[in-house]
């Protein structure tokens, strides 16, 4: 339960062990992974290749049999097919029956998702338009480019008006405009109250749209929590100043050890307790403080630092 509410997605104690034969050495793909995603949030699932992201998603969707663990969508076991009625899924690099047209494929998925006949035609046309395939509705999928198949994959994931959407690398194969469209689409879904679980290698995308992230490493949960809590550097403040005559005041230099300068703009960080003194020193030197914000690491830096540790200890932000 999250604040008394049933989470949209709940994974508890997920474990998957692959073994090709009883005598063969078992390979642990996922070990004790627990994730809760509240309704209406965008939750990022990150990790290097082979970290267990896709296996975790597949266990949630009933595509892989878990060795252990509980998997729920809106409080109901997700491995029961009927409980996936409100779920949309975009697999990584989706493919479709190549001899069908876009409309025929969407009709198939709409029927499987239980979209009523009366709504089907309009819903399919709207979605194809929304993902930029409106002019290709009758084209055969064998003629589609990689990016077009990705867009169709997104459309099929949304065809059943899902309340929970799982997207595995949604920006894969898309050009920069397409990637921006996907970001806007995810934020639009959040505005509509749809919960999104986003698995991605594109950290800038995750940083731009996600409220919380879970980071997997070697099958285990290495870090989990709201992005602000994970990336904000406790006890330090970032100061951006301009108009300084050639150099930082000596008082500031003594208080900081990371200074970056670009043209007339100086960026540095200091301990929270030193902010007042630093602002006064910049003023006294004739400069102007532009911003004072909590120091925040980039997700890329955080990710690299986390995974560089010899053994990823669990790091959970509240």
């Amino acid at each position: 339960m999250i604040d008394g509410h049933v989470p949209a997605i709940r994974i508890a104690g997920a474990r998957k062990v692959y073994s090709s034969a009883p005598w063969a050495r078992a390979r642990i793909a996922v070990e004790d992974v627990s994730i809760e995603v509240p309704e209406g949030a965008i939750h990022g699932l990150l990790g290097p290749n082979g970290a267990g992201k896709t296996t975790t998603i597949k266990m949630l969707l009933g595509l892989v049999r878990p060795t252990a663990g509980e998997f729920e969508i809106l409080g109901h076991p997700s491995r029961v097919p009927a409980n996936r009625a409100g779920l949309g899924f975009l697999p990584e690099q989706p493919y479709f029956p190549s001899q069908l047209s876009a409309t025929q494929a969407m009709t198939l998925y709409a029927r499987l998702a239980g979209v009523p006949v009366s709504e089907r035609h309009g819903r399919i046309a709207d979605l194809l338009e929304r993902v930029g395939l409106g002019r290709h509705e009758h084209a055969r999928l064998s003629e589609f480019s990689r990016g077009m198949l990705q867009r169709l994959g997104i459309a099929q994931a949304l065809v059943g008006r899902p309340t929970v959407v799982v997207l595995d690398e949604p920006a894969s194969g898309l050009d920069p405009v397409g990637q921006r469209d996907v970001r806007n689409l995810m934020m639009g879904l959040r505005d509509e109250g749809v919960t999104v679980l986003l698995s991605s290698h594109q950290l800038s995308e995750v940083e731009a749209v996600c409220d919380r992230v879970s980071i997997l490493d070697r099958g285990r949960l290495a870090a989990e929590g709201p992005l602000d809590d994970l990336l904000n550097v406790a006890g330090r403040t970032s100061v951006r100043a301009t108009g300084l005559p050639g150099a930082l005041p000596a008082t500031v230099v003594a208080l900081t050890d990371d200074v970056a300068v670009s043209g007339d703009v100086w960026v540095f960080s200091v301990l929270d307790a030193d902010v007042r003194a630093v602002v006064d020193a910049v003023d006294d030197a004739g400069g102007r403080v532009v911003t004072v914000t909590p120091k925040r690491e980039s997700l890329e830096d955080y990710f690299a630092r986390l995974l560089a540790r010899p053994s990823a200890e669990q790091e959970v932000a509240s």
Binding site: L61, G62, L63, P81, A82, N83, R84, A85, L87, F89, P91, Q93, P94, Y95, F96, P97, Y109, L112, A113, G114, G153, Q156, G160, V166
Partner: peptide
């Protein structure tokens, strides 16, 4: 192999 089955079985399909 081509993962087209994922689009089907992730829906409420047995």
């Amino acid at each position: 192999e081509r993962r087209t089955v994922y689009n089907v079985l992730s829906k409420p399909v047995r």
